[in-house]
Amino acid sequence: MSKAHRGSGIRTEVNHGRGDCPVCKRTAVKLLFETTVEGEKVKVCKACNAKLKAAAK
Rank of each mutant, 00 (worst) to 15 (best):
G7C: 11
A47C: 01
I10L: 14
I10V: 14
V23R: 07
K46E: 13
V42D: 11
A54R: 14
K25F: 00
A47H: 04
T36D: 10
V14M: 15
L52Q: 15
A28P: 02
V23W: 06
C24P: 01
G9K: 00
C24L: 01
C48I: 02
A50E: 14
C21R: 02
G7L: 07
A55V: 06
I10C: 09
N15F: 04
A47V: 05
T12I: 12
E34W: 11
E38A: 13
C21T: 01
K30Q: 04
G9P: 01
L52M: 14
N15R: 04
A54C: 15
K46R: 09
F33S: 08
H16R: 12
A54V: 14
S8F: 15
E38S: 13
C21H: 05
G7W: 05
V23F: 07
T12E: 15
R11H: 10
K53D: 15
A55H: 06
H16G: 14
T12D: 15
E13M: 07
R6S: 14
A47W: 00
D20E: 07
K41L: 11
E40P: 00
E38V: 13
R18D: 08
K25Q: 08
F33L: 08
S8E: 15
F33K: 04
D20M: 09
C24T: 01
